[in-house]
Design a protein around this nucleic acid. Sequence first.
DNA 1: ATATAAAGAAAGTCAAAGATGGTCAGATGA
DNA 2: TCATCTGACCATCTTTGACTTTCTTTATAT
Lengths: 152, 152
Amino acid sequence: MARLSDVIETFIKDMIKETGGEAEIQRNALATRFNCVPSQINYVIGTRFTTEHGYFVESRRGGGGHIKIKRISVNNPYNDFMHLILSIGDSISEHSAVAHINNFVDYKLISFRDGILMKAAIGSKALQYAFPANRDRIRAEILKNMLMRLIV
Amino acid sequence: MARLSDVIETFIKDMIKETGGEAEIQRNALATRFNCVPSQINYVIGTRFTTEHGYFVESRRGGGGHIKIKRISVNNPYNDFMHLILSIGDSISEHSAVAHINNFVDYKLISFRDGILMKAAIGSKALQYAFPANRDRIRAEILKNMLMRLIV
DNA sequence: ATATAAAGAAAGTCAAAGATGGTCAGATGA
DNA sequence: TCATCTGACCATCTTTGACTTTCTTTATAT
C-alpha cells in the first residue's frame, strides 16, 4: 500500500533536514537498503527533487561516486518571490503550480492556509468547466493574480 | 433486493463514521469485494458523495493509488457555512461573488486575507482567458472549491 | 617510474511492464 | 423514463531491468 517512492522521498527529506540543507547518498547503497533497483532512486529524485521542487542535484560516477541533493536557499525573499511569479509564464500545469505553491509555503513567502486556498483555486476540479485547451492558461492567470495581490 | 449502489454507499458511509470523517478506499479492491466493475465505484461516488451531499473527494492514480472521501464537518458552526457555500449555485457573476466574499469576511467566516485571495482568484482579470460563456460557471466552481477547502 | 590497458565501481538513461484510477456511451432493469 | 450497471478505452504514476557512461583502481609493458 505505502508507495516505496514516498518512503524513499521521506527518508531523503529527513536526511536533508538533519544535515541542515544537504544530503549525500550513494545510489546502490540506498537501493539495497530499500530493496529496490538502483534506478528507482533516480525515479524518486527525478520526480520529487527537481529544480521546480526547490532542489539542486549533483552527482559523480565511478569509485567513490555519490549523489548530493541540496535544498535551494532563498536569500532575498521579495526578489525571489517576484522572480518566481514572473517565471510562471502564460501557462502552467496543475502539477507545476502545486510545486510552486508548496515552495512559497516552504520558504514562508505565503502561509500554509494561503497555500491551501491557492491549490483549491487552481486545481483541476475548480477548472473542470474550462475547455481543456485553456486550462493551463487560465490557471497561470489565477495563480499570478493571487500571488500579486499578496505582495502589492 | 437492495441496489448494489446503495450497499456500496452504506459501506463507505460506515467507513467514514468509523474513522471519524474520512475513508480511504482502493477502487479495484472495493469493486472486487462487491463483485462489480470498477467504474461502478465512480458511479456511487459521483451520485452520492458530491459537494452537494457534503463530501469532498480526492484521488491518485498509479501504483499505491487510492480514493479519499472526506465528510465535511457537520455538527458545528460550519454547518451554516456549508449552506451558504451551496447557495452559490452553479454560476455566479463577479459582482455577486465579491458581495458573497465580503459578507463572509464581515461575518468572520473567513479572514480578510482569505477574502483578498478569493477575490483575486475569481476576478475578471484572472478569468480573462476563459470563454465569456463559461466564466460565471468557472468562477462559481473556483469559489466553492476555495471555500470547501476551509471546512474539510 | 611511466604510460597504458583492463577491470571494477559507481551513476545515468530509457523504455517496457505493472498498478491504479477516470471517462463515457450504451445496455439493462425497476 | 430514470437510475443503475457494464465494458472498452484512456490517463497517470510506479517499478523493473537491460544497456550506457564516467570515474577510479590495478595490472602490465617499456
